[in-house]
Write a protein that binds this DNA or RNA. Structure first.
Lengths: 237, 237
DNA sequence: CGAAGGCATTGACCTTGGTCAACCGGGCTT
DNA sequence: AAGCCCGGTTGACCAAGGTCAATGCCTTCG
């Protein structure tokens, strides 16, 4: 099967693949699968044997845990250009997925065999360092999440989230286009939809933001930054 | 300097070193440092450049974050035979420690240069897989922690902790000897010391446990297991 | 031996965010 | 066009756990 010539370039958007040599990357491309997922469809379930890992091309996929009562906590929302479940196979107990994965939007992915990748790691230290980088990044993200869940309140978490969502580069109005329904963000931040709604109302009444559906216009970035103890906007050097 | 002949064996208790070839392990042993830490003394601070990682020989070290208000959340309590901060150096931004580390008890450690280890990884896939295993394990632990912080209440977290602390093998009374002051456990579980005390009182009144200082006698293991939705004691096969 | 300091416990009260229910509004289906 | 379904909002109430303060207890140290 012939892949588009810049499939490799597409994959390199992910940290995992960014610095991999062309031949190594090609060997992965040869063995990979195309996957399409409709909204709400499961990719894998927690506890299943982890035979593949994934690269998200388009759409949005949530990684989450469920409580026995059926409550959901989203651990991470994967975006296009990111890989996930690439770290699972290294636990002694023949890897099982530690979370559920489900499409939020209609999504397209590439799937890779864990064992093909494993062989690659033995001979390519580029690949290995890419993987270590991805894992290290995820570790750091999880620690940050634990900190904000335990040492900060719901308003802090939401504001921090909004600030991260403001496009970096843009010189224009610092607005946020929410990529998911508010309920999804609520689950990611471990707050109830009602509470999220109330916090937005509070920020709106304080004149910090304006809300129109999924579009949030930030009226006072500095006030938001103060809420999360950030110093007065650092300029890019 | 001549190391005791079984230093290598001591190190192999850690997953990171368990399957490393003897010569590789020896090369690390040659470059490592002995460190002693008195109780309450810091090993490193969040944000410092991460030049070393550590193996804990004796004692207890806490890894934690601080809020701007000075509240502390313990992310992990390291025990003898475990390594930590070995994953830090792979983040693009020339590694900085993502947490604080401080001795709880008087502790002895070995310290390793990150860059020596880095060189080793390039040529030893045993070392690499050891590292991947350690990181994968830690990732899993953090996800579990996020789940229990968000989907479970304080009683659940404490009971789950107690059950984990019951010595695996023992056929005798299933008791728990707390290795740290209760306040430390409270911080690890993200509850206040007062609340922890009240939960223990509740369990005591229910006849599930008895408490004598740092020694907790479990009177009804099954009742505890039920509280965390575990099935009726699985027998070792 | 007595005082002091650290950890733990207990009580009274308060706050944050959760729960439950009603309602709104836009987009789709029939 | 009517109805409906879903996501979101709002209000009233509730409960888990945090806060603050007083007290107890054990270890350490003078």
């Amino acid at each position: 099967m012939n892949r588009s010539p810049d499939t490799a370039r597409e994959l390199r958007r992910a940290y995992l693949f960014a610095d991999m040599s062309e031949p190594h990357l090609q060997s992965l491309v040869n063995g990979m699968l195309d996957i399409h997922l409709d909204p709400g469809k499961a990719l894998f379930r927690q506890g299943q044997a982890a035979e593949r890992f994934y690269f998200l091309r388009e759409g949005l996929v949530k990684l989450f845990r469920l409580s026995p009562e059926g409550d959901e906590k989203i651990i991470e929302i994967m975006r296009p250009g990111e890989t996930f479940a690439e770290a699972v196979m290294f636990m002694g107990t023949q890897g099982r997925y530690p979370v559920n994965a489900e499409a939020i939007n209609s999504s397209r992915l590439y799937a890779f065999e864990q064992k093909v990748f494993l062989d690659l790691l033995r001979e390519s230290s580029d690949a290995t360092f890419g993987l270590l980088g991805s894992m290290s990044r995820r570790l750091h993200m999880l620690v940050n999440q634990i900190e904000s869940l335990t040492l900060q309140n719901a308003t802090y978490r939401l504001v921090a989230y909004l600030l991260e969502e403001i496009p970096r580069d843009v010189k224009t109005a610092p607005d946020v286009q929410l990529t998911t329904p508010k309920g999804v963000i609520a689950s990611r931040l471990a707050i109830q939809p009602e509470t999220l709604s109330r916090i937005l109302a509070k920020l709106r009444q304080g004149g910090l933001i304006e809300v129109q559906g999924n579009h949030i216009m930030v009226r006072d970035v500095q006030a938001l930054r103060n809420l999360v103890h950030l110093p007065p906007q650092e300029q890019a050097p």
